[in-house]
Write a protein that binds this DNA or RNA. Structure first.
Length: 418
DNA sequence: GCATGATGC
DNA sequence: AGCATCATGC
């Protein structure tokens, strides 16, 4: 029996106190939806389509022939055979040489074509996945888009969002970020966005109990600067931008179980330098090293990894005789413990927020969850009050060994609120 | 249906 | 380098 199995795996609290009640909260969020400014997207679409056409023409001229810019196979032929650009910067895929972003960036100094392809890919992605696709998904009855939240597809316990996926709306590039302006509040309302600050690193500090990392968070300073100061044994004000940026990548690399090779690829440094970076990190934060060693040992024995709320992820890879499979399983174990525990935290916050909004009969609507961020719709004039009310609950959803901090903003669209 | 490459956290 | 979804080519 399934109930018997849940009881035996000690998953009763997670199911009955978290996931099932959460399903009701998610249903309300899906039904409420979020308003979309379709006219605004139509305007963007015209501009982007025009520019994409120009780029297509230019690419054909640069290549000396017509080809499908969206076909990696055809592009591979143009770049590496027709134009004879070096394949040395490209890794091998099953079908030949890769033409992904990192490869095109490395080819850019040698020829104009790679840059134009990069821009064209960005525009095509924006048009196909967001600008042209989102208006099709507006419900004519509500004038809003209604995503579906999936509770059972992510191995870590994170939520997923589909049809449309509102958890991967662009923000990084200027053109992409424009799309967020199309997500708007109901008349007389504002959008409020509150996101956890560096929640996964804080979770690592909590899980590992590393004294130096905990101390760094308790100081409330820029975590990447304080870790850089610790690793390089200098004062925080002496940390260079380059040092901070390197340490930031290592900080996040630790969460994903990075190894020398991965870090060297990512940072564009030698494997030897990457090894020194990682040794420096674990030297400065020995508690993190001990935690990871213990987690991996424990996961290997039990064949699974658990989050703070006891959510389980089976990892049979750890018991494989294939070294690559084991190493991949080890990265999954580390990532799952951290990511899954952060997912546990925001789920508790969502339950508390929903219950208190109901109990106090507040006019706040929870609209979206984006892993470490919640977006609400609140009446105009109540932005500041709602922010402190929500922030307080998000920051106290669990008690960790480090402070939990959430940053907030509000505005007349999602970009402004972020 | 798989491979590739884009987007997000 | 971990976790996802979506579009496109073939």
């Amino acid at each position: 029996m399934i109930e018997e199995k849940i009881k035996n795996l000690d998953l009763e609290d997670l199911l009955y106190e978290v996931e099932l009640p959460l399903s009701h909260v998610l249903m309300k969020m899906e039904q409420r939806g979020i308003r979309l400014d379709v006219d605004f997207l139509k305007t963007i679409s015209v501009d982007l389509t025009q520019r994409a056409k120009e780029l297509e023409k230019e690419c054909h001229e640069l290549a000396g022939m017509e080809f499908n810019l969206s076909s990696p196979k055809q592009l591979q032929h143009i770049l590496f055979e027709k134009l004879e650009l070096p394949t040395s910067v490209s890794r091998k895929t099953k079908t030949g040489f890769s033409t992904d972003q990192s490869v095109l960036e490395r080819l850019a100094p040698l020829h104009l074509l790679p840059n134009r392809i990069l821009e064209h890919r960005e525009l095509n992605k924006l048009l196909g996945t967001y600008v042209n696709a989102l208006p099709e998904l507006v419900n004519p009855d509500t004038g809003r888009v209604h995503t579906s939240y999936l509770q059972t597809v992510a191995a870590t316990g994170r939520l997923a969002s589909a049809n449309p996926n509102l958890q991967n709306i662009p923000i990084r590039t200027e053109r992409g970020a424009e799309i967020r302006k199309a997500f708007i509040p109901e008349d007389g309302h504002s959008l409020v966005s509150i996101d956890y600050s560096q929640i996964e690193l804080r979770m690592m500090a909590h899980l590992s109990g590393d004294e130096a990392l905990i101390e760094a968070f308790q100081q409330g300073e820029d975590i990447h600067i304080s870790t850089a100061a610790k690793i390089f044994n200098v004062k925080p004000e002496e940390v260079t931008k380059e040092q901070r940026s390197g340490v930031k990548q290592v900080n996040y690399g630790v969460l994903f179980g990075m190894r020398e090779f991965g870090l060297s690829q990512r940072m564009g440094i030698s494997i030897q330098e990457a090894r020194e970076f990682i040794e420096g990190y674990f030297g400065a934060f020995p508690g993190v090293k001990r935690y990871i060693d213990h987690l991996l040992e424990d996961s290997r024995k039990t064949g699974m990894v658990k989050t703070v709320l006891g959510r389980r992820r089976p990892l049979p890879e750890l018991q494989s005789s294939n070294r690559n499979l084991v190493q991949s399983g080890e990265r999954m174990a580390i990532a799952s413990a951290v990511q899954g525990s952060a997912a546990d935290l925001i789920k508790l916050a969502m339950l508390k927020l929903d219950a208190d909004i109901d109990r106090e009969q507040l006019p706040y609507s929870m609209l979206l969850q984006v892993h470490d961020e919640l977006i609400f719709e609140v009446p105009e004039g109540e932005e500041e009050d709602s922010i402190s009310w929500i922030k307080q609950r998000m920051e106290s959803a669990m008690t960790l060994k480090v402070p939990i901090v959430a940053d907030a903003g509000y505005g007349k669209n999602w970009l402004e609120a972020h």
